[in-house]
């Protein structure tokens, strides 16, 4: 579980996050949604420690990150898996080396044990036989799956995903979404997904946080989002013609 209390962040004079408080539950896929520029990615970067917030408390299992010493912070990072928007795979390494990287860094396993684990996570993301390929030699969807494999190879307690579906076709996007949800439930981890894709909301949104102009304007479940009267949320949800038509059909 991750708790956020009064999180504030600014770049120069521009206030990006204006005091956000929320809870991300364990064993669930927690979504942060909102339009571009609403502060989703900044919030994610604050949560994983890539940006230092101006104010606020971020607690991992009731332990505020501000109270952690350097060693505790390093240990926490080892418990974090991250899926970047572009995959962020290391170009100079093969797929196998990419996935093995966190194991090499943080475990004392032998090469054969690491290899076994790499193959295990590769089959978990339905990617067999790509071990010796380089990231540039596989498709965008496959890169995302490799990135997920790298994120989960160390059995993280927390999984962060920054727009996991960007640049993917709807079918591959659904595969990625389902994979994230399956891993979350099977490993009972706290997953946070930043997205503006309503299909992802429909597929995996168990707890949803809606951000607008740096403020958390709504949170709830997948069922709640279609019942809410909050105008900001309904504007966002029904901005696509598909959802408008579904609403019209339901109303009629």
């Amino acid at each position: 579980m991750i708790e956020v209390e009064n999180l504030k962040m600014r770049f120069g004079s521009e206030e990006i996050l204006k005091g956000i408080s929320t809870v991300f539950e364990q064993g669930k896929t927690n979504l942060i949604i909102g339009q571009s520029g609403s502060g989703k990615s900044v919030m994610l970067k604050c949560l994983i420690g890539l940006l230092k917030p101006e104010a606020g408390i971020i607690s991992y299992h009731n332990k505020p990150t501000q109270e952690m010493n350097l060693n505790q912070q390093r240990m926490l990072r080892e418990e974090i898996g991250m899926l970047f928007q572009g995959g962020a795979l290391f170009d100079s390494m093969t797929i196998e080396e990419n996935i093995m990287f966190p194991l090499r860094m943080f475990s004392n396993q032998s090469r054969s044990e690491m290899l076994l684990r790499v193959n295990e996570v590769l089959s978990r993301v339905n990617l067999d036989g790509v071990n010796t390929k380089f990231p540039a030699e596989i498709s965008g969807g496959m890169q995302k799956r490799v990135s997920i494999a790298r994120a989960i190879v160390n059995n993280p307690k927390y999984l962060f995903c920054d727009e996991p579906n960007s640049g993917l076709d709807p079918k591959t996007a659904t595969v990625i979404d389902n994979l994230i949800q399956r891993i979350t439930h099977e490993n009972n981890i706290t997953t946070i997904v930043v997205t503006h894709d309503m299909n992802s909301v429909m597929e995996i949104g168990e707890r949803i946080n809606f951000l607008k102009n740096g403020l958390l304007v709504w949170n709830g479940t997948q069922e709640d989002i279609f019942k809410t009267k909050n105008e900001d949320v309904t504007d966002f949800v029904y901005s696509s013609n598909l959802f408008k038509k579904i609403r019209d059909v339901q109303n009629s």
Partner: peptide, 17 residues
């Protein structure tokens, strides 16, 4: 620089490296 642009440096930092 390419590693910075493609978030590979962020990936290293997130891993605690």
């Amino acid at each position: 620089g390419s590693m910075r642009v493609t978030e590979q440096i962020d990936a290293l930092e997130v891993m605690g490296i």
